[in-house]
Design a protein around this nucleic acid. Sequence first.
DNA 1: CCTGAGCGGAACGGACTATTCCGCTCCGCG
DNA 2: CGCGGAGCGGAATAGTCCGTTCCGCTCAGG
Lengths: 208, 208
Amino acid sequence: MALIRNSAAYDDQVIAAARMVFAEQGFAAPMSEVARRAGVGVASVYRRYPSKQALMEAVRIASFDRIIQLADMALATRNDPFSALATFMRDCLEENTPVGTVLPPLDEGHVYSEEFHRLQNKMAGLVDRLVTEAQDAGAIRKDVNWADILLLFKHLNPNLPISEHRRAEFRARYVSIVIEGLRSDSELPAPGPGEAEWRRMCDNRSGR
Amino acid sequence: MALIRNSAAYDDQVIAAARMVFAEQGFAAPMSEVARRAGVGVASVYRRYPSKQALMEAVRIASFDRIIQLADMALATRNDPFSALATFMRDCLEENTPVGTVLPPLDEGHVYSEEFHRLQNKMAGLVDRLVTEAQDAGAIRKDVNWADILLLFKHLNPNLPISEHRRAEFRARYVSIVIEGLRSDSELPAPGPGEAEWRRMCDNRSGR
DNA sequence: CCTGAGCGGAACGGACTATTCCGCTCCGCG
DNA sequence: CGCGGAGCGGAATAGTCCGTTCCGCTCAGG
């Protein structure tokens, strides 16, 4: 309810709301929902971002930013390269916000900003470092790369309608990874879903 | 183009098309697209399935059927329980059709048929057997269950907008599994995505 | 050559949403 | 203490999209 009136704080509020909404419902979510979540009127969103496309790009940029932050943090823990990577992955997936890679591309005609590409590259570079260092330490298999990691997010993270070329092909890789992961005897962080849990998700009245 | 005229073959054709279309685009895909893919008119789809809901339930049932088939096949290979499970998982994820569990629930009010529940239970039972046997053989970690496997499909498989309660919580489990999978040194089945590949997927003009 | 069952696709009606417009609120200044 | 206008929320607009229905055509069977 606090009126913010012409403040830059509006930006953060709107972007944060947009990240949440888009993460949950995909880019198809209506602007009005973003506005509602941000606690502002639709017009205020438009006042700052001239179109939905613009807002979506801003959200993607914010996501890149966040991933870069997380990668930096993970890299900063100068001990075990494997746990650095693991931490990074866990952190990313824990955010209930779409990390950049997870988002579907914008409309065909859209031209991304400089900023967008700069951050995208920076992000890729950092993830590459995390992966490479873990590989050099002999901690993880050599046949995955940074793009794999980012794509894995896409698969593990939310639920956006993404339908890209050759997805099936890559999926084969990830299934293998998952299957190998099933062999480990390390303990899992949360109790698994029960029958009832699953039924609720599959059958009816899922979480909305 | 072959005219089928009043034949039951229509059913298979329509269901197959619907499975493909819904797998690729989610339940939001228009009926006209299903019809087009099936090579028939919209009216013909409606002639057989009185509403979109009905078609969607039929598709789900067909998916359960298929999963059951695959589980049966995997179970039939009477050797290694681990590779039975692995085979099953690979098989399921290879289908470019939504396996039943992957599909989002139908509209709140929908009442599922007997058939639906019967097959759903049968499927769960089989997957449980696959998992349990692999666990008894000491091949995979004890702290996963059949629901985990089915949920994993949901995450690894296509792209439908699903937004269920507590998904984040379970995701933590799957991230751990994936991370453990990364440690293995077994070879991956396909070459990973390259920079260009990833950029295409993330930036623009993805696969449609 | 009829005839009607069965079919494809155009057309209808409704729902939904990006974007714009407008009257109201409240801050800051005189 | 009163006025002016910047800034805001939400109603209204204009267009798109899709489920479902309707209709005229086709062709197998007699």
